[in-house]
Design a protein around this nucleic acid. Structure first.
Lengths: 136, 136
DNA sequence: CGCTACTTGCGAAGACCTCGCAGAAAGTGC
DNA sequence: GCACTTTCTGCGAGGTCTTCGCAAGTAGCG
């Protein structure tokens, strides 16, 4: 796993802040910069919000995390390993559900064939109403 | 078409600003509040940004326009009549292409069947790379 | 151990959106 | 056509979220 080296391998320095931001994103699944900062503060109270923003950006540049806009204002970040499923955002309760990429395979193929549009499935936010809210 | 009455019918007053905001959204297809304001200023220079925001909100409440988040920061608005197609947002050039809803019919059905998730196709932004940028 | 380049913390600045208020205007009845 | 009530507009203040510049700190390397 060589956890220690994955950042170095990308040409980045190994600072406590950087590691914490990355592990926060991984453990949270998907989170806003604010939430990441909050998580990091549990073990490193002095971290600055700017640092979180900058590290998220840096980590995104080397492909370890990625961001999406799940509907409302801010961006949410998730780890690259997490990108194997779609995000189903519920407009009513705000929850974020998951579905395997396969569910969209057909659709993606359609768009590629008919419009030459190469859908980025990993950067995919789907808006609608979740099962729980539909019942209400 | 009784253009004059569609606002009145919804219980709204017929102000020049309101009409202009609505027609700006319609002629722009999809636009940010800022872009709407700019368009309106062509015929009504004095309009205030707050007024644009408030009218967009009001028009959304009565169902004449709707907003989506097409990826980056701000919301974009479009007329209700325009909601018969999907929006294909290109991450490279930022263009917004269209595709008929049918292209997603399969996909929507999948999600409904397998996850009970009721996808809101009209509020749907799809991220990827457009044909033009794929070639580059 | 010392040097260089990259990072952090901090405060300021900027973008974007919302809110409250007073004056103006639309719609209504006479 | 006129006065009245209610809604809307313009304006400025206030908030939130994000970015930026700078000086001090520290990781990595010989």
């Amino acid at each position: 796993m060589a956890e220690q080296h994955e950042l170095r391998d990308k040409g980045l320095r190994l600072t406590p802040q950087r590691e914490l931001v990355l592990s926060a994103v991984r453990s949270l699944g998907h989170a806003t910069p604010e939430e990441v900062a909050e998580r990091v503060r549990q073990t490193h109270p002095g971290i600055n919000l700017s640092t979180v923003y900058r590290n998220l950006e840096t980590l995104e540049n080397v492909g370890l995390v990625q961001h999406t806009h799940l509907g409302h204002g801010g961006a949410t970040y998730h780890a690259a390993e997490e990108m194997t499923h779609l995000h189903l955002v519920c407009g009513k309760c705000g929850s974020v559900g998951d579905a395997p990429i396969d569910a969209a395979a057909n659709f993606v193929q359609n768009l590629a064939d008919d419009y030459g549009f190469k859908t980025d499935v990993t950067h995919f936010a789907i808006y609608g109403t979740c099962a729980a809210c539909v019942e209400k």
